[in-house]
Amino acid sequence: MEYQTIDYWDEQIWNQAAPIYRQGFDPDNSKPTTIIRRSIERKLCQLHIASNQSDIIAMALTGKLEGINGLLIDYMAVREDSRGQGIGKMFLDYIIGWSRSALQSTGAVIEIESEDNATNLQRLHFWQQYGFTLTSYVHTYIWVPEKYQALYLIWQPDSQIPQDGEILFEHISLFHNRAYAKK
């Protein structure tokens, strides 16, 4: 497995990663390509890919949460035909290792849909198996109907990452606001 982190827009790589992104996330509730491109060009986020030979089999979009020195895993998906083989865990190992060295982050945060259904429960199980802790606060965005909860993973004892979901969503929302800002 080969891993790569890309902090510049590469149309060819995105065109290979985008089908995995679309498989993993509802297109009505995920970021459009124009927002992703603008976020990468502004250095707000990075695209991570995992490939087996020349085929991309996993992708993730991450960004730094300002003020708390944490990594936001905005999206992470493994290609449908490659799921259940431990690729997600290995890919997450890579992303966290990258975050620790490149960003000197002290932990990571992710938000997941909180609706009680099989897909969301599988996602929650994946993150909790990895060591993430689910917060109890349920957040509602004004622009999407789903409700979300935050999970966090702290790997450095002096981390500034809050363990309160409501406070975490303040930081997550700031990240999203910067991503959607026109300037």
Rank of each mutant, 00 (worst) to 15 (best):
4 Q>S: 09
17 A>W: 02
18 A>V: 03
20 I>Y: 03
23 Q>D: 11
23 Q>L: 03
25 F>T: 01
28 D>K: 07
29 N>W: 07
31 K>L: 12
33 T>W: 02
33 T>I: 00
33 T>S: 05
33 T>D: 02
34 T>D: 05
34 T>C: 02
35 I>A: 05
41 E>F: 00
41 E>T: 00
44 L>I: 00
45 C>I: 06
46 Q>T: 07
49 I>S: 01
51 S>V: 00
54 S>L: 01
55 D>Y: 01
61 L>M: 08
74 D>N: 08
84 G>M: 04
85 Q>Y: 10
86 G>A: 13
88 G>H: 13
89 K>D: 04
91 F>K: 12
96 I>V: 14
100 R>K: 15
102 A>T: 09
103 L>I: 12
103 L>W: 15
106 T>E: 14
107 G>F: 13
107 G>L: 02
111 E>N: 11
116 D>V: 13
117 N>Q: 08
119 T>V: 15
121 L>C: 11
126 F>R: 13
128 Q>P: 06
132 F>D: 07
133 T>M: 06
136 S>E: 15
139 H>V: 07
140 T>K: 15
144 V>P: 06
145 P>S: 13
145 P>L: 06
149 Q>W: 06
151 L>E: 04
152 Y>S: 01
154 I>S: 01
159 S>D: 01
160 Q>E: 08
162 P>N: 03
162 P>C: 00
165 G>L: 07
166 E>D: 08
168 L>Y: 02
171 H>W: 07
171 H>E: 03
172 I>L: 10
176 H>E: 14
180 Y>C: 07
